[in-house]
Amino acid sequence: MSETSPRPAASPADSEVERPLRRVVRAYAESRVALFGLALLLAIVLAALLAPWLAPQNPYDLMQLDMLDGRLPPGSASGDGQLTYLLGTDEQGRDMLSAILYGLRISVGVGVVATLLALAIGMALGLAAGYFGGRFDAVLMRIADIQLSFPSILVAMILLALFGQGIDKIVIALVAAQWAYYARTTRSAALVEGRKEYIEAARLLGLSTARILFRHLLPNCLPPLIVVAALQVAAAIALEATLSFLGLGLPVTEPSLGLLIANGFQYLYSGRYWISVFPGVALLLLILAINLVADQLRDVLNPRLQSQ
């Protein structure tokens, strides 16, 4: 009966088979708005990273500041004539452009670090809850429910009131306010993926639980997590700005965008708009860029659209 043994099945032409990553990149690039958002985001992040080299002065170095240059409108020259304050100065004579670049650095840094930490914690908990189920799952999800029933700003404010100020404290507060989103998203993805036959197959092949969780289950739960994380970075940055604006967040020595806005707030009515408005615009552009990118990622990574 050997004549009928199947010969190697003919292969479809290899030309048009797309790798998953390449498909995502191509689908992402289909939207011009999203490409603009990505470019804007990259520009802002780059500017924040390179702040020490880009900024005309170091806004934290009090020696470089000249109190006599305080509250100058945009485009004014400094008292010693060495530089032009493109975006004006604040009441301490600090160049607003430099302050914004350094502020972005702190805002982006705090947002990204807090998001990554919350993602790692929420992902691990959610993965375990989804895969093992049972009591652990029930307890964890009730905690998440309770936490999510409070506004995140309230959670963060309570924690900051307990811990006090500081960049590490605010990261902790942001993580505490946001881990539950990741835990929930991961859990629901793990529930769906965990029921699929490839997980059963992995169990039958005698693979260890850690291997099944991290090599088989987790990679397949990532697409919705990436979307949530992208949106939550924006939320974390906005939350940090709000807390700093309220004076709860970062100390005055490390002014983030929220604090800059708060500093200029009192001058708004006296016509010195630039102290508040330019940091506000920077924050707005940053959050807009992140949301544009996240929106397109959501469309691209949506499994329902992916199947087509």
């Binding site: 998953p20 699929k196 036959e197 490839y198 059963e200 197959a201 992995a202 039958l204 092949l205 005698g206 088989h216 990679p219 397949n220």
Partner: peptide
């Protein structure tokens, strides 16, 4: 676990039974 390797399953769904990653 060792004995279990000797017993394997062939699944119904040719899509869901292979890890896509």
């Amino acid at each position: 676990r060792r004995v279990g390797l000797g017993i394997q399953m062939i699944f119904q769904d040719p899509y869901a039974s292979l890890n896509p990653r």
